[in-house]
Design a binder for these strands. Structure first.
Lengths: 140, 140
DNA sequence: GATAAATGGTTGCGTAGTCAAGTATATTGC
DNA sequence: GCAATATACTTGACTACGCAACCATTTATC
């Protein structure tokens, strides 16, 4: 049973850690008027070629359901951080494109979140941070 | 900017990873009639001395807000997995105590979640899993 | 020992997100 | 070329939270 316990204990500890991290990130990002999840979306779009992705691609990248993406994009469209685009090949897909305003907000918010991430990983040496990054990268 | 990017990219990748993990855990735990968060609560209580904790301690341990704990406990009380208890010293605190039914459900669910955790960490060698556990343990 | 401040907890209200079902378009099998 | 199936969403209804405001009790201050 203590075999079972150690992996499960790690999981539960991670849950607590993660929820605290997200709360802090949300709180710090609120200066820019966006949440962590919204930032994630801006980030994925900013990295994408032409700064655009389909909603399904976006959902897979940020780990949300399709409907979650639909709902999250509504306010972002309303304040013109992203806009819809079509693709001729397939009338089903509705592309999401980062606007220049959206890119601006993203770039403003990037150092804020980066600082937050550093605060969080500061108990680790930079060597350990690399290790952690590497290990997490191997998980799926 | 690519300096900023690497830490932030890791964070966003972790978010996606985490949400997928929780979805899988919830889905597998549904056999036992509980969610991952509910399991977390049972787990914390099972580890605690006398299998009881105050609501605030519980909130801190699982990373929820106080109100989150209040609401989560309601259904658990209703199906008698946990019960309320008083402490004479302080009439404000309301202890939460794991019932024997609750302990049973916890022990039934433990291997399920453990299997889920193993599935998740299976891309890593056991040496790497230890490293990961160690690194995460150092974060707060 | 009365008043102020802190702590433990609950409730109202709002937001984020899920799943199941529906719609529109594309693709496949015959 | 047309039915069947799959894909890309959207919507309705619901759950899971968080925050702010609120009691109740305890502790500190004077």
């Amino acid at each position: 049973m203590s075999e079972l316990n150690s992996s499960v204990a790690l999981l539960i500890q991670s849950a607590s850690l993660w929820s605290q991290l997200i709360k802090r990130a949300d709180s710090q990002l609120s200066v820019h008027g966006i949440s962590f999840t919204e930032f994630s979306i801006l980030h994925c779009l900013a990295q994408a070629p032409l700064q655009q992705l389909s909603r399904i691609e976006l959902a897979n990248t940020v780990g949300l359901s399709a409907s979650g993406v639909t709902r999250l994009l509504l306010p972002l469209e309303k304040i013109h951080l992203v806009e819809k685009a079509q693709i001729a090949r397939d009338a089903r897909v509705s592309l999401v494109k980062l606007t220049s305003t959206g890119m601006q907000i993203y770039q403003d918010a990037l150092p804020t979140l980066s600082y937050c991430a550093e605060q969080f990983t500061s108990p680790l040496t930079s060597r350990q941070q690399e290790q952690l990054s590497d290990l997490l990268g191997r998980l799926s």
